[in-house]
């Protein structure tokens, strides 16, 4: 009986001390973590639709959407949405034009895809710099190369953009000239990651339309 009480008391004390310590650390860390997430989100919005002020329009069912406004003028939309990738969740930021008809960019914020293959769904530093240096953000000549998978969401030459009707599908082995506005060229040897990002974009635009319609339309 004595040893049982000793065991119980030990576990209770260890558990209480652990809970107390974690509570203190969480009080310190939680605001910093929230601030980091906010900074990352704001930087992604500013990159995808520059020059405006984001106004949150929808925050429901795991989807958050901002309309980026310059005064009264809409510059575009940014959606934060996540889906399942090859190994774990992929969190993305998706840019649409002001009428929500075209996709104007996709940034993967968080993923656990295969290094060297699936990780090509992310925008690299060099790609970001190239996009920032381009007025049209349309690096069409670069589309069709596996490492440049994310660039096709920004435009694939001649002012063409991918459709935001939720009908994007992944294709393989096509040249840039053969690609249509609802076709996304897959990353070689990372089809699952390519399909995952494309499905997230499709699901996000369809869900945004539904949520906005439920609010009375925008």
């Amino acid at each position: 009986m004595k040893i049982t009480l000793h065991m119980l008391a030990t576990l209770i004390v260890v558990g209480m001390l652990s809970g107390g310590a974690l509570s203190l650390v969480n009080d310190h860390a939680a605001p910093l973590i929230a601030e980091n997430e906010r900074k990352e989100r704001d930087a992604a919005i500013a990159f995808l639709v520059p020059g405006g002020t984001p106004t949150e329009m929808v925050n429901a069912e795991g989807l958050t959407a901002w309309e980026v406004l310059n005064g009264e003028t809409s510059l575009g939309w940014v959606i934060q949405y996540a889906g399942i990738g090859f190994q774990a969740e992929i969190k993305t930021m998706i840019a649409l034009d002001s009428e929500r008809k075209d996709v104007r960019g996709v940034m993967v914020i968080t993923d656990s895809e295969t290094p060297g293959l699936g990780t090509w769904i992310r925008l690299s530093g060099e790609q970001k710099e190239a996009l920032l240096a381009s007025d049209s953000r349309d690096l069409g000549d670069e589309v069709g190369i596996a490492q440049n998978f994310p660039l096709q969401f920004f435009g694939f030459g001649g002012g063409q953009h991918l459709s935001a009707a939720g009908d994007l599908k992944v294709v393989k082995g096509k040249t840039r000239a053969q690609l249509g506005t609802s076709e996304v060229q897959a990353i070689t040897a990372a089809t699952i990651s390519s399909v995952a990002v494309t499905d997230i974009v499709n699901a996000a635009v369809i869900k945004l339309d539904r949520l906005l319609a439920g609010q009375g339309g925008v």
Partner: peptide, 15 residues
């Protein structure tokens, strides 16, 4: 407990 402390502090200070 210590692992959770490391995880939280890393997320806060070295995201």
């Amino acid at each position: 407990t210590f692992v959770t402390i490391v995880d939280l502090e890393m997320k806060a200070l070295f995201p």
